[in-house]
Simulated scan of single mutants.
Amino acid sequence: MNAREKKSPGDRRGGIIATATEMFVKNGYAGTSMAQLAKACGIQKASFYHHFASKDDLFIACVTEGYADAVNVLIELRADASLSDPEKIERAIRSLYETIVVSPTGRLSPLVAEVSRTMPSVAKGFHRDYIAHQRSALADLVRDGVESGSFKAQDFDIFHHLVFGPIVTLSLSREMFADFDDLDDHFPVQKLCEGHLASIMDLLAP
Score class of each variant (00 low, 15 high):
4 R>E: 12
7 K>P: 03
9 P>E: 11
12 R>K: 13
16 I>R: 09
17 I>E: 12
18 A>E: 15
20 A>M: 09
22 E>D: 14
24 F>R: 05
25 V>W: 06
28 G>K: 05
29 Y>N: 10
31 G>W: 03
32 T>I: 02
38 A>E: 15
38 A>T: 01
40 A>F: 01
43 I>C: 05
44 Q>T: 01
44 Q>S: 13
44 Q>L: 06
46 A>F: 01
46 A>R: 05
46 A>L: 01
50 H>S: 08
56 D>P: 03
57 D>Y: 00
58 L>N: 07
58 L>H: 13
58 L>E: 13
62 C>F: 08
67 Y>P: 07
67 Y>K: 14
67 Y>I: 00
69 D>R: 05
78 R>K: 12
79 A>K: 13
80 D>M: 05
81 A>P: 07
81 A>D: 15
88 K>I: 00
91 R>H: 03
94 R>P: 04
94 R>L: 01
96 L>N: 10
101 V>H: 05
102 V>R: 07
111 L>G: 08
111 L>I: 01
112 V>Q: 13
114 E>P: 08
116 S>W: 06
117 R>N: 11
123 A>K: 09
124 K>P: 07
126 F>C: 08
129 D>G: 02
133 H>P: 14
137 A>G: 10
137 A>R: 06
138 L>C: 11
140 D>G: 08
145 G>V: 00
148 S>Q: 12
148 S>W: 04
150 S>N: 14
150 S>T: 01
151 F>W: 05
153 A>S: 15
154 Q>N: 09
154 Q>V: 00
158 I>F: 12
159 F>E: 13
160 H>E: 13
160 H>V: 00
161 H>Q: 13
163 V>Q: 10
165 G>C: 14
165 G>Y: 06
170 L>P: 14
171 S>Q: 13
183 L>G: 14
183 L>D: 14
186 H>F: 07
190 Q>M: 02
190 Q>H: 05
192 L>A: 09
193 C>N: 08
200 I>W: 04
201 M>A: 08
